[in-house]
Design a protein around this nucleic acid. Structure first.
Length: 728
RNA sequence: GGACGAUUAGCUCAGCUGGUCAGAGCGCAUCAUUUACACUGAUGAGGUCGCAGGUUCGAACCCUGCAUCGUCCACCA
């Protein structure tokens, strides 16, 4: 053995050894005692985006899952961890579009079919990159079960799920005001909208009350261009200033339309002038007001981000910014612009391409959410699904309790095309999986399938059972669904976790998992979120390359206590590296003390001959109990800190030092060796889920009996009640 | 605007339901090297636990207010 542990030389070799040995597949534990009832333990990886590259969040999250899976595997569970990747609809489409733009091409120039070919090429080329990075992290996923959200069977799952909702009449098609990204040319969900603070203006515009322009009501707006779609002016019913005006008419400047002045509680008396222009087509508050007062919708802005034919000819076809300028100029010329104030407000942007979002009415497919949301909320309220830490339940419930219907359709190209068809005779829509031979509506036409694709999250919501073959009744589905623990990031609690919960209940009748770990967010030194676009991230692969995988995993876990967010510090990784070396050298010392060819029997707990013997053995019992319990409670940081303390300061600093004398004493020599190896081997086992490579590398060298083929399937040193398992 | 969280040694953070709770890692200082490990060992320096009140025999820990920072959520024109 070298006096220094070299992760680079070791890790690839060990990983290949595990993979070739088939240890990542179920039914691997070499349990001495054949257990009659083998329990299953399964984890579904949160599938990273196809466009992604491993970042700190992934590194932490996948380490957590690996700790769970490895410890359960060693504890004798029939364990499987299913890896995979997500096609990431809008995100992937944007990446490929960006590539095209470099060649001065657009997706429209290419056409849908060619564009999709490009996407698949991209998938083949880069889709496995992140999976190989997850391997570098040492994750013990069953790669033979790798899934992609656009695999044939997965597509079938998506279609089956939709058809099921459709048949239950939970799906409808309707024209609603939705978030529209003019650049991506698609609807997007509220959860895909980012609000960015922008310095803008608040314009005060006078709306005449009569044709002689003698009296006015002044409204304040940040978006004057939408006034061309105004259908009312609203005030608060309690506002005395406007009491006499309610029920009267105002004249919409530039358009000349007479619009009513109405009263609605949603209006804040304090803001602006207390009078608001109402544009139901382009604002959600106004849409709500419009519905309540049965106002019509005038679409002033089209899906292309230009003014429509519904506005006066002078503005038609203008882009939003041009229209705004011209409208303000015209108002000024008419002396209808009272004043302008600076105003900072939150402007919605597309999360993926950062273009400003337009709100506009659009024909889309929606999923009725109320009943589904209630089921998902109840599952958590009734403690059938538990969050760790618990306070994230609030985030989850708050969203579900205020749920809006889910706009399922996207006008993208990359994704699952929706299995909805339009009868060419009656123009009715129907759901159909596959290609309908005869139109079920008119019996004679050839129906045309919608060009829309599903929101990416519709397919992600099926992940925990679709990966096991659902809707087919496969062996894997029977064995491994539902999964046990889901570990993920907080920002997708609503986007993903909630949707998996009700999807699972709806389609399988079972909750997809029992425990949800919401892991810490790794922040940078300034306490800000690590962001690739801002270049404030730390690349875990760089750390792995520099310090080794075990050190990186250990350093990460070390810093995360109680899921509290952590400002990342490389020092912890350095400590991890030093520790791996310590482990290596302590093992080296233990082995150097043995004779050539000597095998130490560690089949039973050695006897204690000295006070130090007694102490190390009882401390080992304690640490094995504590580690087991900490993992059970998802307190990984605590587990690794306690293990570290035990190994370095109890085993090395005290026992090994003492053993040097005991090994000189012929009467004690053999027993001391036994204790050294017994405690070392079992401590390596406790450490293995956290730092798998170095522990396996050492284990392979240990001259012990009995010995498993690999530490990864070695029996977990379950705490023995006989020796006390009280926590410190 | 709402919810939640943070503020403890130079840096990154532990400190569970109030009484050996003033700690760890990294860094720093001094000493040790024919010793498994210098990616080491021993010893040590360093903090009135954000600020101001309050509860208590006793508070880093509980309560109130304030300040600063952060994350998520949110249709205020």
């Amino acid at each position: 053995m070298d006096p220094q542990y070299n992760p680079k030389e070791t890790e690839d070799k060990i990983y290949n050894f595990w993979e070739e040995g088939g240890y990542f597949k179920p039914c691997q534990q070499e349990s001495g005692k054949a257990k009659k009832t083998v329990k299953n333990y399964s984890v579904a990886i949160p599938p990273p985006n196809i466009t992604g590259s491993l970042h700190m969040g992934h590194a932490l999250n996948n380490t957590i899952q690996d700790i769970l899976v490895r410890s359960k595997r060693m504890q004798g569970y029939n364990t499987v961890w299913v890896p995979g990747i997500d096609h990431a609809g809008i995100s992937m489409q944007n990446v490929v579009e960006k590539e095209l733009r470099k060649q001065d091409l657009s997706r429209y120039a290419l056409g849908r079919e060619k564009f999709l070919e490009k996407c698949w090429e991209w998938k083949e080329q880069y889709g496995n990159l992140i999976l190989s990075q997850i391997k570098t992290l040492g994750c013990s996923c069953d790669w033979s079960r790798t899934r992609f959200t656009m695999d044939d069977n997965y597509t079938l799952a998506v279609q089956t799920a939709f058809k099921d909702y459709y048949d239950k009449k939970l799906v409808y098609r309707g024209k609603r005001v939705i978030n529209w990204c003019p650049r991506c040319a698609t609807s997007i969900s509220d959860l895909e909208v980012e609000h960015e603070e922008e310095k803008g203006k608040l314009w005060f515009i006078k709306y005449p009350l009569n044709k002689n322009n003698t009296e006015f009501i002044t409204v304040a707006t940040t978006r004057p261009e939408t006034m061309l779609g105004d259908v009312a002016v609203a005030v608060n019913p309690k506002d005395k200033r406007y009491k006499d005006l309610v029920g009267k008419k105002a004249i919409l400047p530039l358009v000349g339309r007479e619009i009513p002045i109405i009263a609605d509680d949603l209006i804040d008396k304090e803001f602006g002038t207390g009078a608001v222009k109402v544009t139901p087509a382009h604002d959600l508050t106004d849409y709500a007001i419009g519905n309540r007062h049965k106002l019509e919708m005038v679409e002033a802005i089209g899906p292309d981000g230009k003014m429509t034919k519904n506005v006066p000819p002078a503005y038609q076809g203008f882009k939003i910014t041009q229209a705004r300028e011209k409208i303000l100029e015209d108002l000024k010329n008419l002396d209808l612009l009272e004043k302008t104030e600076d105003y900072t407000h939150q402007v919605p942007h597309c999360e993926r391409c950062h273009a400003a979002i337009e709100l506009l009415p659009s024909e889309q497919w929606f999923l009725k959410m109320k009943g589904l949301a209630k089921k998902a909320a109840d599952a958590v309220r009734n403690k059938k699904v538990k969050f760790h830490p618990k306070n994230w339940e609030k985030t989850y419930l708050a969203w579900l309790d205020n749920i809006q219907d889910w706009c399922l359709s996207r006008q993208l190209w990359w994704g699952h095309q929706m299995p909805v068809w339009e009868c060419q005779t009656t123009h009715e829509w129907f759901a159909f999986i596959g290609k309908p031979e005869n139109c079920p509506k008119c019996k004679k036409c050839a129906p045309v399938q919608s060009q829309d694709v599903f929101d990416t999250w519709f397919s992600s919501a099926l992940w925990p059972f679709a990966i096991f073959g659902w809707p087919q009744k496969t062996e894997d589905f029977k064995n491994f669904y539902p999964t046990n623990t889901l570990s993920t990031a907080r920002d997708i609690i609503n986007l993903w976790v909630a949707r998996m919960v009700y999807s699972g209940m709806e389609f399988t009748g079972k909750l997809p998992f029992k425990d949800v770990i919401i892991h810490a967010t790794i922040l940078n030194k300034e306490g800000k979120r690590m962001s690739k676009s801002l270049g404030t991230g730390v690349d875990p692969l760089v750390l792995i390359n520099q310090y080794g995988t075990d050190a990186t995993r250990m350093g990460l876990i070390w810093q995360v206590v109680d899921q509290q967010d952590v400002k990342f510090s490389e020092d912890a990784i350095i400590a991890g590296k030093k520790f791996c070396n310590k482990l290596w050298n302590a093992s080296r010392f233990v082995m150097l003390g043995l004779n050539e060819g000597q095998i130490v029997d560690i089949s039973s707990r050695p006897k204690a001959m000295t006070p130090e013997d007694k102490q190390i053995l009882s401390q080992f019992d304690l640490i094995s109990a504590n580690t087991t319990q900490s993992i059970e409670k998802y307190e990984f940081g605590k587990a690794i800190r306690e293990l570290y303390e035990f190994f370095w300061h109890e085993y090395c600093d005290i026992y090994i030092e003492k053993s040097k004398a005991q090994l000189q004493d012929e009467k004690q020599k053999e027993n001391t060796q036994k204790i050294l190896l017994y405690v070392l081997t079992n401590t390596l086992a406790l450490f293995h889920p956290f730092i798998p490579f170095v522990t396996e590398a050492i284990y392979q060298l240990l001259p012990i009996a009995p010995k498993s083929k690999a530490l990864i399937i070695h029996n977990w040193p379950m705490p023995d009640k006989k020796y006390g398992t009280k926590r410190k």
